[in-house]
């Protein structure tokens, strides 16, 4: 019943933002708390936002992320692993979006390395698999994404990321996966305060400006808030590091659709 009532809303959301299939769903509780203004950040979940951040991860790490979706059927989960190598860092991830009658899985491998002391770059190969129940069947898509990060000085860091620049098409109707460019800058105002600013452009959509603040209230306890526009999304998050374990929780609010929650957990060996 709930699904029936929400159907028009879901249709709207898909038409509005999601480009129907093969969408690149973001992961990471920290990023979600910052309204995904995270293209310039280098943390565990950076391979979902900018693989250029990977070489800054110097431990073997595993992580899990859960995104609730506005309804249960729009939930999204990710599982990932990062392995540092002598020249850079290697990452592998697997994510699942949807429910039994409509779901999309994404498997990816990424590699990032230092090009110079301040400049890093990374690339990721993606495999998308979408399945819709009944006569609609399934479709597959291969594509890639890449990003760079530049640390101007101790206070400023910049990031750029491009998803699916070749506009790979899939399925019977030659549906193109979205081509998305993200540019952003972060400014460390003081030791415990970080400002992030990002613009995201999907070729088919309006520019999505995002801004966020991360504040370290007491050592290793982080409070976050961010706002994205087009569409409007207010995010609030909290994160805590406990030795090798880091937990991040975030809530985002859309004025019409309501609330979504994100939770992620990472462990460094």
């Amino acid at each position: 019943m709930r699904m029936v009532l929400l159907f028009p809303v879901l249709v709207m959301v898909f038409a509005f933002r999601a480009g129907a299939v093969n969408d690149n769903h973001p992961a990471g509780g920290r990023s979600a708390g910052l309204a995904h203004a995270s293209v310039m950040l280098a943390d565990f979940w950076c391979f979902h936002h900018n693989q250029g951040g990977l070489p800054y991860v110097r431990n073997l790490m595993v992580g899990f992320h859960h995104h609730s979706g506005f309804v249960r059927e729009m939930a999204h989960q990710s599982l990932a692993l990062i392995v540092p190598t002598s020249s850079g860092s290697l990452a592998g991830s697997f994510s699942y979006y949807g429910f039994s009658h409509y779901h999309q899985t994404k498997a990816a491998v990424a590699y990032g390395l230092h090009l110079s002391g301040r400049l890093t770059a990374g690339i990721q190969l993606d495999y998308f698999h979408t399945r819709i129940a009944g006569i609609y069947g399934r479709q597959r898509l291969f594509t890639f994404e890449a990003g760079v990060q530049y640390r101007v000085n101790e206070k400023w860091q910049l990031g750029a990321h491009l998803f699916n620049p070749v506009r790979q098409k899939a399925g019977l109707y030659e549906e193109a996966a979205p081509c998305i460019l993200r540019l952003g800058a972060a400014w460390r105002f003081s030791e415990n305060l970080l400002f992030c600013l990002e613009a995201e452009k999907d070729l088919e959509q309006q520019v999505m400006p995002k801004m966020a603040i991360e504040y370290e209230l007491v050592p290793l306890l982080f409070l976050r808030t961010g706002i994205a526009l087009e569409p409007v999304l207010n995010s609030f998050g909290v994160g805590y590091c406990w030795q090798e374990l880091q937990a991040d929780l975030a809530f985002s609010f859309h004025p019409s659709l309501g609330q979504v929650s994100n939770f992620s957990l990472t462990y460094a060996f």
């Binding site: 105002f189 003081s190 415990n192 305060l193 603040i213 504040y215 808030t225």
Partner: peptide
Amino acid sequence: RLTPGVGLCL
């Protein structure tokens, strides 16, 4: 105030 130079209101 998050730091002496930065104020926030929610």
